[in-house]
Simulated scan of single mutants.
Amino acid sequence: MEYTALGRTGLRVSRICLGTMNFGWQIGEPESHAILSRALGAGINFVDTANMYGSRDGDGLSERFIGSWLAGSGARDKIVLATKVYAPMSDWPNDGGLSARHIVASCEASLRRLRTDWIDLFQMHHIQRETPWEEIWQAMETLTVQGKIRYAGSSNFAGWHLARAQTVADARHYLGLVSEQAKYNLLTRHVELEVLPAARALGIGILAYSPLHFGALSGALRKQRDHQGVRTQLHAPDRVEPHRAALERYEKLCADRGLAPATVALAWLLSRPGVTAPVIGPRTPEQLDVPLEALTTSLGDELLGELDAIFPPIGAGGPAPEAWAW
């Protein structure tokens, strides 16, 4: 396993992050435990969840499944554990968002479900524009001083959100954001315009979620031809059809090179500057084999150029404003 620093911190995380959105929604507790054990055995020390994953009436099943595994495995000290706050967990008006009240209450609820004394990376799952950053950082500082969280991160932020958040954190002499979890894959490259440049300039590590675009980049066309379908709750066929022409070229390119499409998609992300780790969401222990293979797959400049031709970056490519201006 390869390890790298999370953003500008001294924290070492595996270059594959185990995402657990399927826990509780698509797979049960025994299957979730098997995946966690297989990941840890392979050296994956980075586990990502959210309070709302697997949630039914605020149950937070993904966190509960992880908590029961941690309690039985004794692996807590080996794991860098990340979860999130923002999504409403009930219909009550203060049971969601980024108010100081909800940030603290959500953290304490996650700690109970996860059966742990601390969260390594506490991430804001989305931006809430109406909550001032002074309030948000006050809550995060309180949790840090109490020893309940070690680092703060974000998800689904724009580049200017990262800059504004960090400016206020710096003024308060608080570490601020160390990671941004963003949707990023060969088919979705918007973050290259401003999020990636901002994150790199600020020392914020990028965690790329949906690295296979809900299965579209995993050989979906071949699976359809083989009548296997694409088993995903998020309706991968709907994600495939708008990109069929590009995916046909992609799957042929991978076949010609003797590489699995999922391996290429993950290896491409691992090659991108500023990316700490793709966040993968297996439904079985065996589905961890492809991400592990991607760690040792070098694509080379020629193949990277061919991928750019199939899945062109936005505008002229690269950061804004050069992507659309002189």
Rank of each mutant, 00 (worst) to 15 (best):
Y3N: 03
Y3E: 00
Y3K: 01
Y3M: 06
L6R: 07
L11F: 13
S14E: 03
L18P: 01
G19F: 04
G19S: 14
P30N: 07
E31H: 13
E31N: 11
I44M: 05
I44E: 01
I44K: 02
F46H: 06
A50Q: 12
M52P: 00
Y53G: 06
R56W: 10
G60R: 07
S62M: 09
R64L: 12
R64A: 06
F65I: 11
I66L: 13
G67F: 01
S68T: 14
A71P: 04
G72W: 11
G72R: 15
A75T: 09
K78G: 04
I79V: 15
S90T: 00
W92E: 10
P93W: 04
S99T: 15
R101I: 02
V104I: 11
A109G: 14
A109M: 06
S110H: 10
R115K: 15
D120N: 15
F122T: 11
H126C: 09
I127H: 10
R129H: 11
P132Y: 10
Q138G: 06
A139R: 00
V145L: 04
Q146Y: 08
Q146K: 11
I149P: 05
I149W: 03
I149F: 05
A152D: 13
W160G: 00
L162W: 00
A163T: 05
R164G: 01
R164T: 05
H173I: 09
Y174L: 09
Y174N: 07
L177F: 12
V178N: 14
S179E: 12
K183H: 11
K183D: 10
L186K: 11
L187H: 08
H190P: 00
H190F: 09
E192Y: 11
R200Q: 14
A201P: 01
G203V: 10
I204C: 04
Y209R: 08
L212E: 05
S218E: 13
A220I: 13
L221I: 09
R222K: 12
Q228W: 13
G229P: 07
H235M: 10
A236N: 02
R239K: 08
V240Q: 07
P242W: 02
A246G: 05
A255E: 05
V264K: 02
L266T: 05
L269V: 00
R272Q: 14
P273V: 13
P273C: 05
P273H: 03
G274K: 00
V275Y: 07
A277N: 02
V279W: 07
I280N: 00
P285R: 13
D289E: 15
P291C: 04
A294E: 06
T297I: 02
S298D: 14
S298A: 15
G305V: 03
D308E: 09
A309S: 08
I310M: 04
P312D: 07
P313T: 05
G315D: 02
G317T: 11
P321I: 07
W324T: 15
A325H: 14
